[in-house]
Design a protein around this nucleic acid. Structure first.
Lengths: 204, 204
DNA sequence: GTCTATATGCCGATAGAC
DNA sequence: GTCTATCGGCATATAGAC
């Protein structure tokens, strides 16, 4: 494993566990077993390291989401039927968890993302928002079509509720210590439970 | 206004805006217009200051919640009818927002609470969890009665989704910069929108 | 109770040898 | 590319004058 990879792997876990600001370069390099200067050599700064981690995991997730949302939008234009809330939300939510569950990447990255919505740290929030907002807008447009009798302001709020619920699933799945309500080992079915919750909640 | 009050007021706003760790004692005392040492003299430490802020706002909210939840539990025992999801959730959610809307206190405290669920900072999380868990347990028991056909594990997850949605409402209300989805000025009706979303989402 | 001054320590980042 | 050594800054906390 290259030094660069070792750093990213260690940083991902530490950022997930303790947050960006609380995690020090010394902790990262120590865990990775590399020299303190290596972060600045390979990434330029602590912030650039976070960005690199974010892009590595986030790009494929977002591409999948955009693809699926576009497909739903196209289908609803061809047919004379508006999209359903469920297919819109599934297109957004499923790619997020699919990557995590495939195992290879980002078991810890999930927690960073789950936390990003209520992140007080400007650095983290800006990196996150800049990448997620365009997709959110696509999703919101579809939802407005799916709920023609609901004002755009109300759709915005409902979408926000949905993202809050999703955020808790991201941080909580396999990570009880964060906020343990007990008996949360549904595991495989949780994503469907989440989607069901959101779809019913959004209904007009 | 006493020095102690001035400090608490300034700290509350800064903690809400930038998070606990990111906020420095210098920023707090400077904003409050008092000396740097005053925090340690009046509270003992930065952490104790946060605890004091938390208790000031949280105690009355929690008392109201426990009172209302107890009333629901008692009623469902006397009648042969289980409680409804709506009355259980209302008993928990409404006191939270009622205090904030009454104006006098904690406009900024709301954001601290809303963020606490996904807080990476151990200090903040522990203060919060220690105070909210008993009430959450009461609420969960009522929800299990309201959803007799749903397993406790599933109720736990649904409750978690609900808290995630609520968290977004707490941070977002009047605080667009955090995560602005646009047109979110429903304001007065947002709490009812939130409760409607949660109740429908939880339905068996 | 409130101030100044300072102790003590960790932070991110960089310079420069190898 | 990787190391050591260190810079300049800011953090919390406290000692002691007033």
């Amino acid at each position: 494993m290259t030094t660069k990879t070792k750093i990213m792997k260690a940083a991902e876990e530490l950022f997930a566990h303790g947050g960006f600001h609380h995690t020090t370069m010394r902790a990262i390099t120590s865990k990775a077993g590399v020299n303190l200067s290596a972060v600045n050599y390979h990434f330029g700064s602590k912030e650039a390291l976070l960005t690199a981690i974010f892009d590595m995991h986030w790009t494929p997730i977002n591409e999948e989401r955009v693809q699926r949302l576009s497909r739903v939008a196209k289908k609803s234009q061809e047919e004379p039927q508006p999209p359903t809330i469920e297919e819109a939300m599934r297109s957004f939510i499923e790619p997020t968890f699919a990557l995590f569950q495939s195992g290879a990447s980002g078991g810890y990255f999930r927690i960073i993302v789950g936390r990003a919505l209520s992140e007080p740290d400007q650095t983290v929030r800006e990196i996150f928002l800049h990448r997620v907002m365009p997709v959110i807008e696509m999703l919101k447009d579809l939802l407005c079509q799916a709920m023609p009798r609901t004002s755009r302001a109300e759709v915005s709020w409902k979408l926000r509720f949905a993202l809050g619920a999703m955020s808790q699933t991201l941080t909580g799945h396999n990570q009880p210590p964060l906020f343990y309500l007990g008996e949360e080992k549904v595991s495989s079915g949780v994503v469907d439970l989440l989607i069901g919750f959101i779809v019913k909640g959004m209904q007009e």
